[in-house]
Amino acid sequence: MSDTLSLQAQPRVEAVRAPSRRRRLSEGARSERRLGWALCSPAAVIMLAVTAYPLAYAVYLSLERYDLRFPRQSHFVGYANYQAVLTSGFWWHDFLVTVVITAASVSIEFILGMVFALMMHRTIVGRNALRTAILIPYGIVTVVAAFSWQYAWTPATGYLAGLLPSSAAPLTNTWQAVGIIILAEVWKTTPFMALLLLAGLALVPNDLLNAAKMDGASAWQRFVRITLPLMKPAILVAVLFRTLDAFRIFDNIYILTQGAHGTGSVSILGYDNLFEALNLGIGSAISVLIFIAVGIIAFVMIRGFGTAVPGSENL
């Protein structure tokens, strides 16, 4: 664009200065641009190398019959892997388990996280100690916490199992085990939810709450009519993050039940197809389906509920 401009301008002597100044200006902008790209390139290259390329490769693998036990017999099979997965009862059962775990843990976490956030915001006793305590599960390695829950619910060994009738073995019953998985997930990730909600709470102006109080609004009315609506952006971001995170649940299930007794999530199913069945084609098809599901959830939440993408506004 600027090249053609300067070419046209060349014959006219008095216009020569203008393009050259424009070029000098854009020289500064251009070097800023180059510096920007140069500074971002290491991060961008490594992020794309680890995600974009393998994802494309996963799509390719999902269209192949590729069994690690017979790598020589690999060949293109089109949609056959997807057909095999989508017509299998295992996929739909595990999909249902994943949806139940996601929905239950995000809802419970939201309520518990809101309680924690309000406590951190309002408490008059041990504010710092409370914040530190609430943060602890965030730091604990998921696998460590999962082992703790597993041993706690194992008959004889476990303290919590000891509180149940003596014949109970909750980790061997599908929906009881799913309940324990949800408990472990809620325990581990509530701090994250609580912190994001706390950040939202900090944005609610105190004057407004006091004014409402003067006008005779009850605590509950103030919370529902003022605090919640003003917190909406923070709530949507927290729920979006946690929903996408819960949908890929793996660590807790792997340690607690290994996906036995029908407690597997879609991530566990994908893992088993790769490392137990050694079937890269089917495993990849499952991987791609999970990616599509996550994409749909994100799209619906961002478009449907107007969740703002964090960081996009302060550019």
């Binding site: 994802l55 996963a58 996550v294």
Partner: peptide, 18 residues
């Protein structure tokens, strides 16, 4: 920024096989 947000929310299982 968009790409890094995507990656933060990426289902890692999708990358395990490849």
């Amino acid at each position: 920024i968009g790409v890094s947000l995507l990656i933060a929310m990426f289902p890692q299982i999708s990358l395990v096989t490849p």
